[in-house]
Design a protein around this nucleic acid. Structure first.
Lengths: 224, 224
DNA sequence: ACCTTATGATCCAATACTATTCCAAAAGTA
DNA sequence: TACTTTTGGAATAGTATTGGATCATAAGGT
């Protein structure tokens, strides 16, 4: 029975993921249980899991478990994955001001309330760049949702997926200090206020301002 | 039951949302009830909810409850394939005027020459709606290419894939008569001229005019 | 023989879950 | 308005579970 090596275990697990036995966000059984069910040592099983983690299929969290992060082939398009930070800003420069205009047309009170809530979460995260970035992403997604256009929502989501990538995370650590977060918070409030008072062009202008700030902080970080 | 951890609870709730068990603006059961029904401690349940909130799926209001704010992962092809024609116009309204501005910044002579060539192809296709639509798609893609941003090019391509869909083709048959094609050709020329003379705002304005024409012809066709 | 690999055991550190308690915000009610 | 109930938020301590790491040993292939 020569099939009992780490690579073949990895193949088996990979298939379990692609055929839908384990889906995105699912947690795999504990390494001890998995090892037993495959009839291999836990060490071997661990090798297999780490192999899959290197492929980006799994995320292994010490003390917690192994989680499915992607579906393999389907995942992120190359154009999005390899997009430079400045390309992202360009795309957001195109989309988000116009989304603001559409939001003024279609936004309802509960939409604004949800965004207000996210603003508060960002405002209480001046010391936690990661938490801030999460809420920030959710804010821009909520804004896109107000357009009621699934296509636009999807486009924004695609752009946002990049934020979880390595280079972007590193960039965030460089640029997101407390002062910058405060500035972003003010700008988010400005945008929300303009949306609430139904001023499309002011909202779009504030959004452009916001993005210009982000672009500046990026180029500054790139110079260092 | 080894599935009793916060991530798996989050998975279960996430599925309840995408299934439609809970819909937008619905309030989830109280955390104490949910915790009991899942057979986990309220602490664990709270972790799961906060996880979903960070994803932008829920909004947790202290003293009130947890409300569904988003529909979860829009499965990738669906958002694009099922996009209504008017959603497409909205997306192009966002992207293309800004692409014009970027084109003024980055466009080179050969880019304009290529677009000029496509204009001529469209101008000699007033009697052939299919040939015109092909060249039109190519024109807008060429325009996006001038930005040298793979992300923007990809976004435009995604939007263009919809044009091959049934509903869109039917719509095109209704709207694309010779007079309309002539009008589009004039507008394409206007845009190209503005780009060549490096006037970003005039190019953007002409593009908006162009898209507004397309939107009007769509809504007119929808009324019949 | 030598080298590679899997094993099985053990200990460690990180994390998660439970249970309990108290608090504050919101909603319902008289 | 004032009172009560219901809601989520937070802190704590204890226990269980998880992956990480190491090691000597055994098996298999060269």
């Amino acid at each position: 029975m020569a099939w009992r090596n780490s690579s073949n275990v990895a193949v088996a697990i990979r298939r379990s993921i692609t055929d839908g036995t384990y889906r995105r966000h699912d947690r795999l059984p504990a390494s001890r249980q998995l090892a037993e069910s495959f009839g291999v040592a836990r060490n071997t099983l661990r090798d297999a899991l780490q192999q899959l983690e290197r492929e980006g299929l799994l995320e292994i969290r010490p003390g917690s478990g192994a989680y499915v992060t992607g579906l393999g082939d389907q995942s992120i398009p190359k154009a999005v994955e390899e997009a430079a930070p400045l390309e992202l800003i360009d795309a957001r420069f195109a989309l988000e001001p116009h989304i603001c205009r559409l939001c003024v047309l279609h936004g309802k009170r509960e939409d604004f309330d949800a965004m207000d809530h996210l603003c508060r979460r960002m405002e209480s995260a001046t010391a936690d760049p990661t938490a801030f970035a999460e809420a920030d992403t959710a804010f821009h997604k909520a804004l896109a949702s107000t357009t009621r256009s699934n296509l636009l929502i999807w486009l924004i989501e695609q752009i946002n997926t990049v934020r979880s990538l390595d280079e972007w995370t590193r960039m965030r650590q460089l640029t997101l200090n407390a002062a910058m977060i405060d500035q972003y918070n003010v700008q988010h409030r400005d945008i929300l206020n303009a949306l609430r008072s139904r001023e499309p062009e002011r909202a779009a202008a504030k959004m452009k301002e916001h993005l210009e700030t982000a672009r500046l902080s990026l180029t500054r970080a790139a110079e260092t």
